[in-house]
Design a protein around this nucleic acid. Sequence first.
DNA 1: CTGAAAGCGCTAACAG
DNA 2: CTGTTAGCGCTTTCAG
Lengths: 339, 339
Amino acid sequence: MGAHKVTSAEVARLAGVSQSAVSRVFTPGASASAKTIEKVRKAAKELGYRPNVLARAMVSGKSGIIGLVVAYLNNQFYPEALEKLSNALQERGYHVLVFMASQQAGNIDKVVDEILDFQVDGIIAASVALSSDLSDRCRAAGVPMVLFNRAQDDVDMSAVTSDNISGGRKAAEFLVAGGHRKIGYIAGWEGASTQRDREAGFLAGLRDKGVELHAREVGNFVTEQAQEATRRMFASDPPDAVFVANDHMAIAVMDTLRFELGLNVPGDVSVVGYDDVAVSSWPTYDLTTVRQPANRMVADTVDILLSKIENSDVGPRRVEIDGPLIVRGSARIPEGWKT
Amino acid sequence: MGAHKVTSAEVARLAGVSQSAVSRVFTPGASASAKTIEKVRKAAKELGYRPNVLARAMVSGKSGIIGLVVAYLNNQFYPEALEKLSNALQERGYHVLVFMASQQAGNIDKVVDEILDFQVDGIIAASVALSSDLSDRCRAAGVPMVLFNRAQDDVDMSAVTSDNISGGRKAAEFLVAGGHRKIGYIAGWEGASTQRDREAGFLAGLRDKGVELHAREVGNFVTEQAQEATRRMFASDPPDAVFVANDHMAIAVMDTLRFELGLNVPGDVSVVGYDDVAVSSWPTYDLTTVRQPANRMVADTVDILLSKIENSDVGPRRVEIDGPLIVRGSARIPEGWKT
DNA sequence: CTGAAAGCGCTAACAG
DNA sequence: CTGTTAGCGCTTTCAG
């Protein structure tokens, strides 16, 4: 007993047909007589036969595997995205091979090579920066790739993000409308396009209102660094409002403000974040934040990738999805602010 | 340019050796002369050759893929575990194919079938209940499987969990020592062994101290349901302490207690959770909880699985790792409580 | 050590 | 519609 993988040949023998007949019965776009189908299905069930996806991949050239590169799962936005991506792909007949990559550049290249070894049909890179050499390699291998939640200068690279510039601007307008004039910014990792765009939009928004940035510190999207950034920023001449580059850090900032610095949010300081992850809506934080429309980002990412896979000559697409400012209680609400 | 996958045959031609020579150079346990190795490596680099993992899998029978079934990523414990699992496996030369499975039983069976189609070398099932029929199927296919954070009656099934009974007992002893006599329990999904064991240990702990359970509600490991369970439990004759089956729910319980019911934690009610996820240590919650030693659970899971893969005749192993009670501020600390 | 040859399990022409 | 025949790219005997 045990440890035996049933082959199509064995099913064929039992069903009294050729091996290719079996293959046809299990190949989506194939044709076989009702009688054959019936015989084969019966034999297959009896033997517990299921086609070997890897063998199919070898000859067809399609593995049904999508490589997903992801850097860290600490930020709640990513597990959520990963779950949605995986589900969306599963619904369309694909499966996700996960590769964790630390942020170090060299690592990513190694990881992508490994991905390519698996003959994946496509790659989704979530929040990782890629060397342009890498994109070339994928292109040479004929494997389409799309960036999720990160854009790149390379115009040939498809990418899906929220509209980070517009989002940053919304945060600025809200804070200024709320009467704040001493406004600080806690930046994420400066290698990230999301960080750069959010900051650019935020600064542009301030400038348009004639307000100058009061303070700036870098938190690198990391909890501990965001806490330290907060301490530095509030050590002297503290701001009365802070825009934080993502919710993950914003939560840490709020905790530091409240428990370490004894400040009241939003009484003493207004805080605005970016992402609208699950925690942000918890009553404890009740964080005003710019929502990243994860569902639409995922849907678009999958659409773009699959259309590239199924129709190899479509050009690159870059999508920026506008997300609303979700007004909650962590920042002073301007009088007469219309949702 | 474009879309061409380099084969070992092409490398062989360029290097002026046979195709099998190329294979040997890229096969870990193979032998080739220094001269051959050199020629092949050079040609390979020039062409950008990398072995096709799928083809290798076909003939060797080892795909290097581990199927990971996971139900939901909401509970912070899982992204963390997934990340650690993936990293540990990557370090040992394996890769993770992720399958999301909703809790419905039928779904899981389908998912496992799909996993098997990929000729995975092994399966890790995180927090999903499996029909015994399924275990048989995997055994028949010769694919080892280990359960992560869930046990099963089937003694042939390897499983790694924390010592949930002992953990539940620790929570009971702590609460009773803290002077509580009206103690409630908010249960997780009753199909989960973790839930059952935590409750059993908790009740045993209470019984040993001569305390009776004051109230019990079911939260199913779901935020919203935990909130409702809290409301029901505190509607009349409220307890002065609650043990919640996991931190994910405990956080929701605390928020409900504080913001909806206006109660003070731990002043009016003590709360103890289970898992020690990242949020639990945030100052806002500062949750007293039983830690699940994720690192050791992951390490053991990987060890067990790989030893089964590499040495097919090892028996099943069931590991229960003891986790400490992490005493923080969400529950009254007994006088003279020794850490 | 090395090349030739035989498949791994399956799909895709190709004749019938 | 169906069986026969080639391979997909690679590892692994098997003779040299």
